[in-house]
């Protein structure tokens, strides 16, 4: 090492050091500010929300446009909407996922088209689901503003994510199991129901839980399908207000509804946190690392 070389390398070293420090500071600042904002939102919801919540709030009827009383009927409506959504979307999704994973290896043209169409479905804006649900379920099928309309609209909405997670769950079952079962002369149907589905069950359940989360979070698609009515629904053809719609209504349309909006938001976020934990737990059981987005490879 000669002297001038050392001097140059020291100058470069200083310049490099300065750049490293700048980039490090920038990256840490960005990451921490994102987390900081998230924590800000969550504590804001928790602090203002928890002040309003007691057991009575969760079960009693709503009074004075929501400024007083509870959210009992709204929790009931939300539950019913989710139920309708799941009853329709689970069989559709599991069936589609089985069809998509039917062939190991070579992707068929059919599967490729189904996937592409699901990619588009995953991107459809929620307000467009609202328009569609209103035109198709509420008006054309004559279901009106009802829990049934809302649930069916949400079923269409969660379909892509539920299919994707189910497909991942089925694919995660080691192919050796299937070969072994096939080598024993078992039929495909038997292999599916006796070998594949039991192994994939926790991951399938995780997908369902994740979809419940998506459905719970949805508002825009429900405004014009399940409607605003805050009474306890007597049948699936009654209109029912979901938690998310209730938050919107209290925050925007009811002067002085802010406190109760926070309380409802707190309940909703708590439910979603539980769902998040449940998904993580179910996935840990299977060892599947879940990174859901849209898209596949065709």
């Amino acid at each position: 090492m000669n002297d001038s070389g050392t001097a140059t390398s020291r100058v470069i070293g200083v310049r490099h050091h300065r750049r490293e420090v700048c980039v490090t500071v920038a990256v840490w600042t960005a990451a921490m500010s994102v987390i900081g904002l998230l924590i800000w939102i969550l504590t804001d919801i928790a602090v203002r929300g928890l002040a309003e919540i007691d057991f009575g709030f969760l079960i009693s009827d709503m009074q004075n446009a929501g400024r007083e009383g509870g959210i009992g009927p709204i929790i009931l409506s939300t539950g019913l909407i989710l139920l309708v959504c799941l009853v329709v979307s689970i069989p559709l999704s599991f069936g589609t996922a089985i069809a998509l994973t039917e062939r190991i290896g070579q992707e068929t043209g059919f599967a490729c088209n189904v996937r592409r169409s699901l990619d588009v479905l995953a991107g459809v804006p929620s307000i467009v689901f609202g328009l569609f649900g209103n035109a198709f379920f509420a008006i054309t099928l004559g279901l009106g503003y009802s829990i049934l309309s809302g649930g069916l609209t949400l079923a269409c909405m969660v379909l892509p994510i539920l299919i994707r997670t189910s497909e991942q769950a089925l694919r995660a079952v080691p192919a050796e199991y299937q070969y072994a079962a096939a080598a024993l002369g078992m039929k495909r149907t038997t292999i599916l129901f006796r070998v594949v589905l039991p192994v994939a069950m926790p991951a399938l359940a995780a997908g369902v839980v994740l979809s419940i989360g998506r459905a719970l979070a949805e508002t825009a698609a429900l405004l014009f399908t399940s409607g605003y009515v805050a009474r306890s629904p007597e049948s699936l053809l009654d209109s029912g207000r979901s938690l998310s719609v209730h938050i919107y209504d209290l925050a925007m349309n009811v002067p002085g509804g802010g406190a109760r909006a926070y309380a409802t938001a707190c309940v909703l976020v708590a439910l979603l946190l539980m769902i998040n934990l449940a998904t993580a737990f179910l996935l840990r059981m299977t060892g599947v690392r879940h990174r859901s987005t849209t898209g596949g490879t065709c």
Partner: peptide
């Protein structure tokens, strides 16, 4: 039963795929 499994699941997949067309169809109609 294998063949009927294929038929059932493929039908379900076709329904799932058709929803997007249904949405576009209804938007266009309205």
């Amino acid at each position: 039963s294998d063949r009927s499994l294929t038929i059932v699941t493929r039908t379900l997949a076709a329904i799932s795929a058709a929803i997007v067309l249904l949405i576009i169809g209804f938007l266009l109609r309205e």
